[in-house]
Structures are given as structure tokens and as C-alpha cells.
Amino acid sequence: MDLLISILSVAGYEGLIFGLVAIGVYITFRVLGFPDLGVDATFPLGGAVAAVFIVKGTNPLLATSLAFAAGLLAGMITGLLNTKLRISALLSGILMMVGLYSVNLRIMGGANIPLLREITAFDLFSKLTGLHGMALSIALAGLVALFIFFILNWFLRTEIGLALRASGDNEKMLRGLGVDTDKNILIGCSLSNGLVALAGALVAQNQGFCDVGMGIGIIVMALAAIIIGEGLFGHPKGILSILLACFVGTFAYRLFITLALRLGLPPGDLKLITSILVVIALGIPHLRKRMRQEWIPPASRM
């Protein structure tokens, strides 16, 4: 029983925190149709910025906000590479991912920053609520997730948000209706990377250190979570169900991973498992069609 609760609470905390990453990735991949791989580097960027400022004695809430802002900026650069220099979306993200690695090292002044002796947002929240351990992690992650959930639920229904949502589907129509589609990409990429950096900042504070490699493969993890969430929610179209699908999908994915770890799987194998999970989720529907001898459109290269 205790084991079950412990597994569920780990997955719960991670579902909330990494759900933010999933939402960020959802915004680029699904809403904008802009496969931005740069999040692999904006996740540690968020951690790095928060860690450096916290070590300097900055208020952890401010440090976390600055991490969010750094993510916004990084996303904006990715968007600019695509819209102003016409570099493909995929390559823009990869260029950012590679370039930011060096930037992250510079910011951190090394590959790792310990935060165990520093006062983090979690410590502040603990003082405020008296919570400790897992309950504290879940409470703060939940609070942030809830806040973002409400903000996005509002934003995506505004006039600007609505134009953003048509972006991945039909940019030609949007331009015809007077929407600056380049600006759309900038807003979407910024928002997406901001959320990922925010998650990175919180993860670093919760685990007590920031590591330059902590973002590796996070894009695949987020995709796996999105695919699971979409499966569970039957390819949602409404804003509420999309946001929920991201969180629930991440929770289900982390639950699966936590169970796999408990069953004695070496942590090093996780990334392979995640990749295989995504391959299965994407490949099976296709193979099924092939078996039913249905017509299959040519492979997409995007």
C-alpha cells in the first residue's frame, strides 16, 4: 500500500511538472506545426538561470521568473531564425539546442550547480505551508500547474490566442484574414520554451542541483506523454481537454517509467524505452492500416 502511494505520488509530482513541458511541446508541435527540438536545451537553461540566481542570493521566486523569461527569449530566437532567416523549423530548433548547450555551460560556469544548501522556492513554500517531502513537491508543482492551466485556458480563448490556434492548421487563411503569421510563430515558440524553462527551474530546485545534461531526451519524453494523453482523450480538440490530456498523459507516462524503475530497470535504459514507446505509439496505427491494406499517404518529411 505504502509502495503504491509512493509510486503514485512520484508520478503525480512528475506528471504536474513535466506536464508543463508537455504543454510547451504541444504548443509548438501541434498548435504551431513547428517541431521545435530546442526544448532539450531550454529545460536546462531554465534550471541554470534559476540556480545561478539562487546561488547569488536572489529570491527563488524571482529566480524562477527569470528562468521563465530566459526560456521566452530562447524561444523567440528559435522563432526568429525561422521567420526572419527562413531556416526550417526543425533546423532552427536543432541549432538552438546545440548552441544553447554552450550557453548553459557559460551561465553555470561548469556542468553542475548544487542547490542543496540554498533556499529554493520549495523551501519558501515549505515555510509557508508547513509541508515537507513529497507532499511539498506535489503541492507546489500542483499550484504552478494550476496557475499555468488557468492562464493558458484564458489566453487560448482570447483573440490573439485564437489566431495562434489556427496557425498550425492554416497559415494561408490567417494571412488572408490579416494575421501576422510570423508574429504568431514568435509568440508560440516563446510561450512554449518559457514553459519548458519554468519546468526546468522547478525541477532543478526540487532535486537540489542543476545539471547541464538534464534536458537530454526531454523532447521525446514530452512527445510520448502527448501521444499517450491524446490516446486517452481521443485526440482532443477543445482547449480544456487538450490541457488536461497533456497533464494526464505525462502522469501516465511517468507512472509507467516509475513502475519500470521499481521493477529493477537500470535508469540508463529509460531513454531507449521512451523512444521505443514513441515508435510503437506512432508506428502501430500505420502498421495496422498496412495490414488492412488501406491506402497510406506518402511519408511526411516534416
Binding site: 489566453f155 480563448r157 482570447t158 483573440e159 490573439i160 490566442g161 485564437l162 489566431a163 490556434r165 489556427a166 492548421d169 492554416n170 494561408k172 487563411m173 490567417l174 488572408g176 484574414l177 490579416g178 494575421v179 480538440k237
Partner: peptide
Amino acid sequence: VGTSRNLSIEENLSLALLRGRPRTLKKA
């Protein structure tokens, strides 16, 4: 080309109603 598949009829018309006007943070 003239419509957005993933949005509702109302949302499509909302986008069109604001043609050429600045889009704001008001509810669409």
C-alpha cells in the same frame, strides 16, 4: 484554404470578424 479545420464554426467566424483589425487579449 478558406477555413480552419480544427476550429469550430464560431471560432472561424471570430477570426474573420476581426479581419484587418488589431487582435487583443479580449475574449474572442
